[in-house]
Design a protein around this nucleic acid. Structure first.
Length: 104
DNA sequence: CAACTGACCTAAT
DNA sequence: CATTAGGCCAGTT
C-alpha cells in the first residue's frame, strides 16, 4: 500500500461528504481506513487539480485550517456559508450539528 | 541518510 | 475550558 493509494482513498471519502456537512481530518482518515493518518489528509487536499469538496474539511475544533495563504481560508468559509453551514462568533462551526458522522 | 515540518488528533492533567 | 505530551507518517530540506 503506497502513499498515493492512501491519498486517493481519502479523497474518495472527502468526495462523499454531503453538501452542507463538514468532516474533520481525523474523520476522513478514520473513514478511509487509516485512523492515524489525519495529517496526510491535509497533504492530499493540498494537491491541486483534484475535484473534491476540500472546503468541507475542517479541524477538530470546527475551525478553518490552513496557514492563511492567499485568503483561501476565506474562500472556504464563503463556500460553506453558501451551503448553509453557519459559523459562530468565534469562527467555529457547530460540529454537533454539521459534522458528517456515519459511524463512530 | 538524518532532521525538520506540518490543511492534525487524542488523552491526560 | 487551557495546556502539555505524545503519537503518526509522508514530504521536504
Amino acid at each position: 500500500m503506497n502513499a498515493a493509494t492512501i491519498r486517493a482513498r481519502m479523497l474518495d471519502v472527502v468526495a462523499a461528504v454531503p453538501e452542507g456537512r463538514v468532516a474533520t481530518y481525523g474523520d476522513i482518515a478514520r473513514l478511509a481506513g487509516f485512523p492515524r493518518h489525519s495529517r496526510q489528509v491535509g497533504v492530499a487536499l493540498r494537491e491541486p487539480g483534484n475535484e473534491v469538496p476540500w472546503h468541507r474539511i475542517v479541524n477538530h475544533e470546527g475551525r478553518i485550517s490552513r496557514r492563511g495563504l492567499d485568503g483561501s481560508d476565506e474562500l472556504q468559509r464563503y463556500l460553506l456559508e453558501a451551503e448553509g453551514v453557519a459559523f459562530d462568533a468565534e469562527g467555529r462551526i457547530a460540529l454537533r450539528q454539521y459534522r458528517w458522522e456515519m459511524a463512530r
